[in-house]
Write a protein that binds this DNA or RNA. Sequence first.
DNA 1: GGGGCGATGTGAGTTAACGCACAGAGAGAA
DNA 2: TTCTCTCTGTGCGTTAACTCACATCGCCCC
Lengths: 293, 293
Amino acid sequence: MEHWDEVRTAYNVARIGTVSGAAEVLGVHHATVIRHIDALEERLGVKLFQRHARGYTPTEAGSDLLRVAQATDDQFSQLAGRIKGRGNEVSGELVVTSIGGLSHLLVPVLAAFQDAYPGLTVRYLTGDRLFRLEYGEAHVAVRAGAVPDQPDNVVQPFFRQDFTLYASEAYVARHGLPESCKDFGTHRFVGADDPKSRAPFARWMQENVPAENIIFKSGDVHAQRRAILSGAGIGFTSVLQAAEVEGLVQVVPPKPDWAAPLWLVTHMDLHRTTKVQAFLAFLKEHSKAWQPE
Amino acid sequence: MEHWDEVRTAYNVARIGTVSGAAEVLGVHHATVIRHIDALEERLGVKLFQRHARGYTPTEAGSDLLRVAQATDDQFSQLAGRIKGRGNEVSGELVVTSIGGLSHLLVPVLAAFQDAYPGLTVRYLTGDRLFRLEYGEAHVAVRAGAVPDQPDNVVQPFFRQDFTLYASEAYVARHGLPESCKDFGTHRFVGADDPKSRAPFARWMQENVPAENIIFKSGDVHAQRRAILSGAGIGFTSVLQAAEVEGLVQVVPPKPDWAAPLWLVTHMDLHRTTKVQAFLAFLKEHSKAWQPE
DNA sequence: GGGGCGATGTGAGTTAACGCACAGAGAGAA
DNA sequence: TTCTCTCTGTGCGTTAACTCACATCGCCCC
């Protein structure tokens, strides 16, 4: 049973009773309807209609087709309604991904967004690997670093995340603060575990801090911040994260060179949907407080 | 949601995951598949798939379509199986119509046919009006008289029904038998109620028997036979019917001029079906005993 | 009974859908 | 990295499907 359009044609003929009437409803010429019926009967090897001057009356097979196609028509109508409607409503699932270091900013916003749309389920993905928008793994991604140049991805600037060096009050009381790069040899540092990290502050540390002075390394920014707080050494933390923790002292003011630009990335096919647009607007609104100035 | 073929295309893309694979399954070029998807998405206003180099992955709307179309595909497959299969089996309903005077012959055959096919329901229609095959009122009709020339009807000769004049034994004992037409003026007759009857014996009676001698008239042949049997007069009855009744005496031997040819008529659209063919063969086999010689 | 109407059917012309060929882009392997 | 394979995407020519027009046939109403 291929050629579903022919089934639809036969369905309308059976429903209405005449070829002409069905042709009008279908918006095609009645000759087309006749050819569809003939082709379908030929393929099935059974007459679906008895032809007479007043129209077509379905045989048993035609009546059977009428019932099945009626159900199909209903199903498709409902489907079309759901699909068209869903394009304009915020429901189902919203999948957001970002680097782990942004969870303290995003999670409250996600929770508030879910609260605003009760029909919505939020999934927040963080992980080592990059979740790929083109495979439908997420609707929205928050990416850091250089402008993502993936084709089929819509990229918007989000905000600039400032970083600088922090130390715990206990560390300062014990070791003091370095006044310039020349003092780094006498201090201990907390840094990134990944030597290939492309974060600007991480590369700065690789170039300006002797490797042997980096005595605590972790791939997780939260672990690094905890290490700094525990007095393990001096290390980079985002200004916003540091502000939420008691007991951290800025070693130097934030430098623009250390800042990491953040980008909002969506897949082209999903970017126009109401759900994604609603979340992007919601996120931008709530992130105004995070902007540097 | 028009263009069910596009839904089928999208269904296969969602099911298989690639345009090329779906195109192969559908037996069309992959460009056609792409155009179908694009047209469907355009019409719905929602992306059904996320496109990437490895194939198409369904969005939520695409997944929804996949579910619905999967069910539709199943339904259509079952429908095709039923329709194709039903063409080769004898089941459902068999509707046979004839003039009322043939019921004593047809009913036993219909009962035996039903007994041979337990899945079958038989309907036997008799009535004043002609049941019309082209409106699907019956599968098979047994017609008398001239060759039916309805277009779209398949006509086969059935057998020749012989008629002649009968009288009851009581009538003969009381009035004797006429030896020729000249004696008709002294006899009483049972005849047809309808002066426009086209039956050859009825017209013969109109022409050869004085109207005032026809003292019992009925439209029903069974009533006429009963009247003859009750001694009301001389009248025509089919030879086969008369043979089943005790107490009837042939006034004259059957004449070919009085015989009524019977025809088996089916609608063109139903004639080829196994069910109709099975019944026609069954009926012909059982009617061999009725043939004159 | 006859004219009009609406239905089915068929042949000819036209449009739109399809197949073909090639370009481009990732993904995986050497 | 580079090569290769596969899949997507698009312009162009062709074919098949569709529209159009006309013929035909029944039915209904006048």
